[in-house]
């Protein structure tokens, strides 16, 4: 893995995107487990329930809140948990090329991503129900994942400045 917009291939920014995409599958894993009756939806959830929490906490706060609102309105876990995975796939399809193509496009894409993750992380520090409802056991790993995504993307920008 290399850092910097001029590198085409696996960079910090693309790795951050992949991490975020794979975390979007964690809530789906729990819902599918409950649907096929390997897990009991009315119980605490155990390890897979914790993974569900980590997956939701790893999402940007706006996305997590939208997911919760969608669940509240539709009462369909299956649809609600497929939505973040679909969103991650669509964003991945659109973002991979700008991140890998190099040059000014990649640089601007990274700046936008870093700005959004920074705002999201600051919002995630507020002691509100939207940030603490899953408890510290899921909120801390989720925040660590978001911080890692920010750090990886920021590393590309720093590498760009050094090469200029």
């Amino acid at each position: 893995m290399k850092f910097g917009s001029e590198n085409k291939g696996l960079t910090g920014g693309t790795l951050a995107l992949y991490i975020w995409q794979l975390c979007a599958l964690l809530p789906l894993l729990y819902v599918v487990g409950c649907a096929v009756q390997l897990l009991d939806a009315t119980r605490g959830g155990g390890f897979f329930g914790w993974l569900f929490g980590v997956g939701v906490c790893a999402m940007p706060r706006a996305e997590a809140l939208a997911l919760s609102l969608a669940y509240r309105l539709t009462a369909h876990e299956a649809v609600v948990c497929l939505a973040p995975a679909l969103l991650a796939l669509i964003v991945g399809l659109f973002l991979v090329k700008p991140l890998k193509c190099g040059g000014k496009t990649a640089r601007l894409t990274r700046v936008a991503i870093v700005a959004l993750w920074t705002v999201d992380l600051l919002a995630g520090l507020l002691p509100l129900a939207v940030n603490t409802v899953f408890g510290w056991e899921a909120a801390l790993p989720g925040m660590a994942i978001r911080l890692a995504c920010l750090a990886l993307t920021a590393a590309d920008l720093i590498a760009d400045r050094r090469t200029k």
Binding site: P27, Y30, A41, T42, R43, G44, G45, G49, W50, F52, G53, V56, A64, L65, L67, S68, L69, Y71, R72, E77, P127, L128, A129, V130, T132, V133, F134
Partner: peptide
């Protein structure tokens, strides 16, 4: 229902996230 401890259930927690989301839990 029939969840005995909704404060620990992940789906109930997701549901509650948007209830009073901007107040202390």
């Amino acid at each position: 229902l029939p969840v005995d401890r909704p404060e620990e259930n992940p789906l109930c927690r997701l549901y509650r996230m948007s209830e009073g989301a901007f107040v202390r839990e």
